[in-house]
Every structure is written in structure tokens, then in C-alpha cells.
């Protein structure tokens, strides 16, 4: 009985989250590139966000950024700035905007857009070198973006 209630509750949450999810092309930016509204309505999970940041097949953020809190992830790059203290510099809406489409915040930046599906030149099918097919989607799902935003929110300088 207990189990059934739990499963039911879980279904409801997923169902609600799905209904509220904003599609990549419907995301609203303000004039500085920030995205105020959560993409899913479900608060991000910072632990999941941390995994996404270091996973080569997902965010792979450490390919370009150093993050002291993730120092166990070997070979952090320095193409982008260090993300230490990033939560002191940007609020949640701004961080979400940088993840969804960093070009709206930084004109011409090399940082990829993690939640966008159109406007690419010769988009491929992941890293196969072949053309994109029907499976083409954003680099991260809406919830994964929220998870990373939640993790970035923990990166404050200690006083």
C-alpha cells in the first residue's frame, strides 16, 4: 500500500514537471541574456549537477573551466574562467541564461549553448562525424540544466 502511494506520488511529480517544461525554442531571455523562469518548475539537484559538470558525455564543463570544488576531476581546462565563486557574480536567472545560450550573455563566446536545437552549421549526430538525424536534441535536458544551475549556486567564496 505504502509502495503504491509512493509510486503514484512519483508519477504525479514527473507528470507535473513534464507539463511545465519549457521547450528550447520557447525560452525567454531578458536583455542581458538571463532566464528568469525555471525550465521545469522542479528545483535542480546540485549533486546531479556536479556529475553532469564532470561527465565527458554530458556537460564536460571542466574541459574548459577550472572548479576547485571538483578538483578530483583530472585535467581541468582554462579556455573559460575559473568557476570558483561564480554564485557571487551571477544570480540563478543569469546562470541559467549562460547555460541555455551563453551567446546571449557573451556575444561570440566559444562556450556552447546547452539548451538550444536550431541555428547550427552542419550539426552532427553526437561525435560520430555523421549528419544529425531525428535523435538530435539539446546538449542537456531541461532538468539537467536546472541541476547544473543548482550546483553552480553552491560555488560561493567562503568569507
Amino acid at each position: 500500500m505504502k509502495l503504491a502511494t509512493l509510486t503514484l506520488a512519483a508519477t504525479l511529480v514527473t507528470g507535473a514537471a513534464f507539463a511545465a517544461e519549457i521547450a528550447p525554442s520557447d525560452v525567454q531571455f531578458d536583455e542581458y541574456g538571463a532566464v528568469d523562469q525555471s525550465l521545469t518548475g522542479t528545483p535542480g539537484n546540485p549533486e546531479e549537477g556536479e556529475k553532469i559538470m564532470t561527465n565527458r558525455g554530458l556537460g564536460n564543463c571542466v574541459a574548459c573551466h577550472e572548479v576547485s570544488a571538483l578538483d578530483y576531476a583530472a585535467f581541468q581546462g582554462n579556455v573559460g574562467p575559473s568557476l570558483d565563486g561564480v554564485a557571487d557574480r551571477w544570480n540563478e536567472a543569469e546562470l541559467r541564461g549562460i547555460l541555455v545560450n551563453a551567446k546571449k550573455t557573451y556575444d561570440g563566446t566559444v562556450m556552447p549553448s546547452y539548451y538550444r536545437v536550431d541555428g547550427f552549421v552542419r550539426p552532427g549526430n553526437a561525435y560520430t562525424g555523421k549528419a544529425a538525424d531525428d535523435s538530435f536534441g539539446p546538449l542537456l535536458t531541461a532538468q539537467q540544466v536546472e541541476d547544473v544551475v543548482a550546483f553552480l549556486g553552491t560555488l560561493e567564496y567562503e568569507e
Binding site: 552549421v121 552542419r122 550539426p123 552532427g124 549526430n125 561525435y127 560520430t128 562525424g129 555523421k130 544529425a132
Partner: peptide, 12 residues
């Protein structure tokens, strides 16, 4: 060249 273009998630 092919490897570098592939690494941008492009059709090479």
C-alpha cells in the same frame, strides 16, 4: 581535420 571537425559535434 576530420577529427577536429567531428569534435565540434558536426557532420565532417
Amino acid at each position: 581535420f576530420k577529427g577536429c571537425v567531428r569534435d565540434t559535434r558536426a557532420e565532417t
